[in-house]
Design a binder for these strands. Structure first.
Lengths: 355, 355
DNA sequence: AAATTTTCCGTGTGCGCACACAGAAAATTG
DNA sequence: CAATTTTCTGTGTGCGCACACGGAAAATTT
């Protein structure tokens, strides 16, 4: 080669194959119009020299503009879904010079109809790639199928569906995270203690995510043969009626003096912490999920013992980057990407915030 | 603007300021040779339009080659220092098209002289930026000072020194990680239990890293007023004499029947797990650091309860990327970057490996 | 065998920027 | 005021690649 950096360029290959750069280009992009003879010669040289296209130059030259669209639940400041969006923005800034734009669409996570409406908008936007939080699984699968038919790659974050039309998934192994939570909860718990499993009643039904977590949680005790060692009580709280929730919890503690721990599989364990505080009940080991909203102060003031987190910002970031790697850099993308199951305590949480 | 993407280019600014692109270039790079009048006009337009140079195009055009050099301890496969190097390699591949090369130098982490020798090699290599694991703090600080005098930015990973000539640091808050470990160890431990604090004797003396961890660990018990609640026993093990270590531990357990937990602040807790297994001692809560070597199987077979990890791969990756961002993209770099204090158990470790 | 179509291939241009060079304008000198 | 120096500014080239265009060579048709 005659270039300084020692990197193989198209023109190097062209010269070695005694053809023009244009011909090499045609081979590399599979655009045909090349005789088999020259094609094979070029490919063998590409192989031998381990040619790697200079992505910098490629993206500078590329005329094509990519349009990414994300579809996430609406949120208010401090809520869970702020984090994935932050990750998406970080990715956007990083890749916007590759002629990639990222638009955002939102739906109401308690209203399937709004998801459907947003889906339509998304399809009309004619995206080159999409990132979806499939809160409504069936509707999401339907959308993904349509995208697949149009050859538009899509990634899921947070949870995935059972259809196999998506390019990639970034999220937690919900079952295993419940299993890990069980271990933390059980550690040091006295025999015969009562464990509260608290759910929030929702119009839309229990999410698949929290359900799998609960399954994993229970599996721990079953596998260890601890189902008789503790008492499990299921509690249902309203999503909005605080007064009623207070009464409900008061009743439970009246009936059960041996409650040792409680767990909540969604991101609102701080509400339970609040209730316990109001009832002046102490010494209950509380475990919840995610860094959102009131959970951080609750962990810091020790009313919550552990939080299980799932790197939501990374999910957004990596989801977008996967699409970029696929479309722009033509890389292979791993299909299932489980995020680490982060265990947060008062003592280490500071190093997870804004990391 | 007349370009499609809506991005401001140098030529757009030139046209608006009624000058040539070359003049704008001179202003942007502070190369002088521009009249104050035009300079100010150009700068005001740059400001108003929020001009952001296209880094893609810049790096394609840039003639300058950057030479990064890393200085890490030598290691054998599976050992701790394999991870940072993996991160460095990942960064290297990602940035090699920006005309950045990364060379690696090594030293023997038990021999200060080898660090000094490697330092000399490093300086002779005339690097544009360096990444250093300052195992030998004084020697590292000296090296950093010389680099600083030559205007060569350097980052520390793993631990840092007290000099202030480094650009940035990526590593764990050792003290706090010891504090967090204490919390995990104490949870569920019965009153009066004995806690073993195990060190490895080293010729080079205790590393600053493990010392700070131990300080944080002890601080937890002091702050909580638990110093009398438990008994603390310090144990010293040889770095190589397994037979002697076995005898030493056997003696300890003969004398102390109430050992409830043990902690080791370096990455070799699996050795203690081995010893306990040979002595057929069970029910001891063992806590250690890092995912290296035998620690992973020890955690998985439950002979170790918790491992504290510090994302060594990320340290290497982010360290190199920081240098790249500083030199190539001229970005501001955060000086102190504490890595999350990851808490690993049998239940979540799988999702940290190869993440 | 000439005309037409199809297959194949080389050349040229531009992406946005850095940087070299030449040349114009202004300032200084004699 | 001409000659020289200094200050300033515009033009041109290339980084490695994608892609359009035009045209040569071969294959096919008339």
């Amino acid at each position: 080669m005659s270039n300084l950096s020692g990197k193989v360029r198209i023109i190097d290959i062209a010269r070695m194959a005694k053809v023009s750069p244009g011909t090499v280009d045609r081979v590399l992009h599979n655009r045909g119009q090349v005789s088999d003879e020259k094609k094979e010669k070029i490919l063998s040289i590409v192989e031998k020299l381990h040619y790697q296209p200079n992505m910098i130059a490629r993206s500078l030259a590329m005329k094509k503009k990519f349009r990414f669209v994300s579809l996430l639940p609406e949120y208010r400041s401090g809520e869970y879904w702020e984090a994935p969006e932050k990750g998406i923005d970080r990715a956007r800034i990083e890749i916007h010079n590759y002629n990639i734009s990222v638009e955002k669409l939102y739906f109401n996570q308690f209203n399937a109809q709004s998801f459907i409406a947003a889906s339509e908008k998304l399809l009309n936007a004619n995206p080159d790639a999409v990132l979806i939080a499939p809160t409504f699984r069936n509707e999401a699968a339907l959308l993904m199928e349509q995208l697949h038919a149009r050859n538009v790659p899509g990634v899921y974050i947070d949870s995935n569906t059972e259809d196999d039309h998506y390019l990639s998934y970034f999220g937690q192994h919900s079952y295993q995270s419940g299993y890990a939570a069980a271990r933390l909860l059980e550690n040091g718990l006295p025999q015969g203690a009562e464990i509260l499993i608290i759910r929030t009643i929702r119009l839309a039904g229990t999410s698949n995510q929290t359900q799998r977590r609960e399954e994993g949680f229970m599996a721990y005790f079953q596998e260890k043969g601890f189902t008789d060692k503790y008492r499990f009580t299921h509690v249902k709280l309203s999503a909005d009626n605080d007064a009623e929730n207070l009464k409900e919890m008061e009743n439970i503690f009246k009936k059960s003096p041996h409650v040792g721990a409680a767990i909540m599989f969604n991101s609102r364990v701080y509400q339970v912490a609040d209730i316990l505080k109001k009832l002046k009940i102490k010494g209950i080991k509380l475990i919840g999920y995610d860094l959102s909203g009131g959970n951080v102060p609750a962990l810091k003031n020790e009313s919550v013992s552990f939080l299980i987190a799932q790197r939501p910002e990374d999910q957004g970031y990596q989801g977008i980057m996967a699409l970029c790697n696929r479309l722009v850099f033509n890389k292979e993308i791993k299909r299932i990407n489980y995020m680490p199951i982060d265990i947060l305590t008062k003592e280490n949480i500071d190093y997870y915030i804004n990391y």
